[in-house]
Design a protein around this nucleic acid. Structure first.
Length: 555
RNA sequence: GUCUCCAUAGCUCAGCUGGAUAGAGCACACGCCUUCUAAGCGUGCGGUCGUAGGUUCGAAUCCUACUGGGGACGCCA
C-alpha cells in the first residue's frame, strides 16, 4: 500500500469511527466511504459524500449527518488537519502539509519503481492483442490495438498483475490458401510472366515484396515443382516471411509478445478434437443439415453456430474455442482479448463457448477497440487490405513519428470512435501533445544538469520548505500516480495514464514559470526543489514508459 | 429489421464505481524571454452535455423511447 492509499484508508477509518460513535447507523452496517479529489482545491485535499449517502439509513438531512460526524470525529494522531462541511453536505478534508513531503521521498527513493503497486495481487492475466492475419501489412486499426494493448499490459504489470502478452497467428484456414495463391501469382509476375491474381487475393505491396525476394533467391526453379509442391512452398515461405515482417514491425513499434501462438499447432496436437469432445460430452453439440453445430443459444448467443461445415472442415470458431480452452488450461485467472469493433459481434459466441467448456463466463473479458477513421486532404480515406492502398502502421510511424503515434492512439479511450487527420498529425507534429510532456521531462533534465554544474545536489532534508502553491500542486499530482496506475489497470483504461501525464506536465510547467529552482542565495530551498523536480522527472519517465513513449533528456 | 458502440466548446477529446461553478489541447484575442529550454506560462472568448421523459437529496454519468453516425448480423476469417 502506498503513502496516499494509507492516508486515504486512515481517513476512511477515522470517519467510520465517527459515524459509529455518532450512532448514525446500526453497529454492524458496512459503510462504504468514497473519497474523491475535489476539482477545486478550495474544497480541500479530499472530499467525501458519505453524509449524503447516509440520508436514508440515518433518516436525517445530509448537513445534520455531517455535523453529527464532525462532532464525533477524532483526528488526533492522524494526518488530517481539518474537516469542513460544505455545499449540500460534503465533508472536505484538508491534510497536514508535511504529509506531501513524503510523496517526494517516495518518488525519489523508489525511482523507476515509483508507482508500482500490488493492487493486482499477482492475478494471472493473459492479454491477446493485434493477432492480425499474416496476409498483409498492419494498418491503422492494428496500430491502435497495439498501442492500447501494449500500454494496458504495461499498466497492469506495474499495478501488480502477472501479465502475459500473446499474439494468435491465424496460420490455418482459407486466408492462408489465398496467401499462397497470391504469392505464386506475384512470384510469376516478378519473373516477368503473365499471372492473374486470385479473385480473393491479397494485393498488398508486402506480398509483392516477398515474391520479389523469393524470385531473387530461387530464380525460376519453383516453377518446375508440382502444383502441390508449389502450394506448399508458397504457403510456408509466405507465412514465414509475413510473420517475420509482423514481428519486426511490432518490435519497431515497441511491442513485444511473450507468446506467438500458432493456430496450426492446434490442429497438429489434437487440441481441437479435445475441445470438441468436451463440448460434446457437456451436451452442447448437435448435427443438422450435414454440419455440426454448437448450441451457443443456451448461453445467450442469438443463434447457434456451425463448428464443422458440411465439407468436413472447421469454421474459424472451432480452433478459436480450442485456443481459449488451451489458454484456460494454462492457468490464467483472466483472459483479456483486445478486438477491433468489427469483431464485436463475435463476443457472445466466444463467451458462450467459455461457459460451455465449464468455465466462468467472466473469465473472458473482451475490450473492443473502435474503428479509426482516417482523413487525408480533408476526405475520408478507406482502409482496405485487399486494395493495397491502405496506410500501414509502418508508414504512419515514418510520417508522424513513433512517440506521437503511440501517444495519439493511447490518449483516447478505446471504446470511442476516433478520427485521425493524417495531414494534421504530420504538419503539426511539433504541436502534438506528446511533446508537451516530453518537453517537461527535458526541461527538468536540463535544470538538473545545470544544478550539477553549480554544485547543487538534491536533498530530502528540507522538504518542509516546499510550501509554494505551485509546489503543492505538483506534489499532489506526483502523489496521485500509484493510484492512477492502479485505477487504470483495474478499469482497463490505459488512456488515463496519458491524461495524467498531461496533468503532471502542466503542473510542472506552471511551477517552472512561477518559481526558479536554482538559487545561489538559498541552498536549502534549491536542494529541496531539486528533490521535487527529480520526483517529477521520475514520475514522468515512469508514466511515459507505461504508454511506450520515450522520455528525452534533451529536446 | 435485430444487436452493439458512440453523440460534451468552432475542431480533436477528457470527465474516476452518480456529486459542488462540466475540463484540456488546437483555433481565436491580449499579455510574459538581460533570469534554470518560449515545443513554455498567464488572462480572455467559447456549452440547451443529440432530443424527450424517468429514477433521487442530486444526472454529462443510471433506465426507457426517439434522432443521427460507426460497426456487426456467413457452413468467411
Amino acid at each position: 500500500m502506498n503513502a496516499v492509499e494509507q492516508l486515504q484508508q486512515s481517513i476512511k477509518d477515522t470517519l467510520k469511527a465517527a459515524i459509529n460513535q455518532a450512532g448514525l447507523v446500526e453497529a454492524d452496517t458496512e459503510v462504504n466511504i468514497h473519497l474523491e479529489t475535489p476539482k477545486d482545491k478550495a474544497n480541500g485535499d479530499f472530499a467525501t459524500n458519505v453524509a449524503m449517502q447516509l440520508t436514508k439509513l440515518a433518516k436525517k438531512p445530509p448537513r445534520a449527518i455531517a455535523e453529527s460526524i464532525l462532532e464525533n470525529v477524532n483526528t488526533e494522531g492522524t494526518d488530517i488537519e481539518k474537516i469542513e462541511i460544505a455545499g449540500p453536505g460534503f465533508l472536505n478534508i484538508t491534510v497536514r502539509k508535511d504529509f506531501l513531503a513524503g510523496v517526494v521521498k517516495a518518488a525519489f527513493e523508489q525511482g523507476e519503481n515509483y508507482g508500482r503497486s500490488t493492487a493486482g495481487a499477482g492475478e494471472k492475466v493473459q492479454v491477446e492483442f493485434v493477432s492480425a492475419n499474416p496476409t498483409g501489412d498492419l494498418h491503422l486499426g492494428h496500430a491502435r490495438g497495439a498501442s492500447v494493448g501494449d500500454s494496458l499490459c504495461n499498466v497492469m504489470d506495474f499495478a501488480g498483475f502477472d501479465v502475459s502478452r500473446e499474439y494468435y497467428i491465424n496460420d490455418a484456414g482459407n486466408q492462408i490458401n489465398n496467401l499462397a495463391y497470391s504469392l505464386e501469382a506475384r512470384y510469376k509476375q516478378a519473373l516477368g510472366m503473365d499471372a492473374e491474381m486470385p479473385e480473393d487475393g491479397y494485393h498488398g505491396p508486402d506480398i509483392i515484396a516477398i515474391a520479389g525476394k523469393l524470385a531473387e533467391e530461387f530464380g525460376a526453379s519453383i516453377l518446375d515443382k508440382t502444383e502441390e509442391e508449389r502450394f506448399k512452398f508458397f504457403r510456408e515461405h509466405g507465412l514465414k516471411l509475413e510473420l517475420a515482417k509482423l514481428q519486426n514491425d511490432l518490435k519497431n513499434f515497441r511491442v513485444e509478445f511473450d507468446v506467438w501462438y500458432s493456430e496450426t499447432s492446434l490442429y497438429e496436437n489434437g487440441k481441437i478434437d479435445v475441445a470438441l469432445e468436451k463440448l460434446k460430452s457437456n451436451g452442447h453439440v448437435f448435427d443438422e443439415e450435414g454440419a455440426t453445430w454448437f448450441r451457443s443459444t443456451t448461453f445467450g448467443d442469438d443463434k447457434d453456430r456451425v463448428l464443422i461445415k458440411n465439407d468436413g472442415s472447421f469454421t474459424y470458431l472451432t480452433p478459436d474455442i480450442a485456443y481459449h480452452e488451451d489458454k484456460l488450461r494454462r492457468g490464467f485467472d483472466k483472459l483479456i482479448n483486445i478486438w477491433g469493433a468489427d469483431h464485436h459481434g463475435y463476443i457472445p459466441r466466444m463467451k458462450a463457448a467459455i461457459e460451455a467448456l465449464g468455465y466462468e463466463r467472466e473469465t473472458l473479458e473482451v475490450e473492443v477497440i473502435q474503428m479509426v477513421q482516417l482523413y487525408k486532404n480533408g476526405e475520408k480515406f478507406k482502409m482496405s487490405k485487399r486494395t493495397g492502398n491502405a496506410v500501414t502502421m509502418r508508414e504512419l510511424v515514418e510520417e508522424v513519428g513513433l512517440d506521437a503515434v503511440r501517444y495519439f492512439f493511447v490518449k483516447t479511450a478505446g471504446d470511442s470512435h476516433m478520427d485521425f487527420d493524417l495531414d494534421l498529425a504530420v504538419s503539426q507534429s511539433n504541436e502534438n501533445p506528446v511533446y508537451y510532456a516530453q518537453y517537461a521531462h527535458a526541461r527538468i533534465s536540463s535544470i538538473l544538469r545545470a544544478a550539477s554544474e553549480q554544485g547543487f545536489e538534491a536533498s530530502l532534508e528540507n522538504l518542509n520548505l516546499l510550501v509554494a502553491e505551485k509546489e503543492e500542486d505538483v506534489l499532489k499530482k506526483v502523489g496521485a500516480f500509484p493510484q492512477i496506475v492502479a485505477d487504470a489497470a483495474k478499469h482497463r483504461t490505459p488512456h488515463r495514464i496519458a491524461n495524467y501525464i498531461q496533468d503532471l506536465a502542466a503542473a510542472f510547467h506552471s511551477f517552472y514559470n512561477a518559481e526558479k529552482v536554482l538559487n545561489q542565495d538559498n541552498k536549502e530551498l534549491t536542494e529541496a526543489r531539486l528533490a521535487l523536480i527529480t520526483a517529477v522527472k521520475t514520475t514522468l519517465a515512469n508514466a511515459l514508459k507505461l504508454i511506450g513513449v520515450s522520455a528525452p533528456e534533451k529536446m
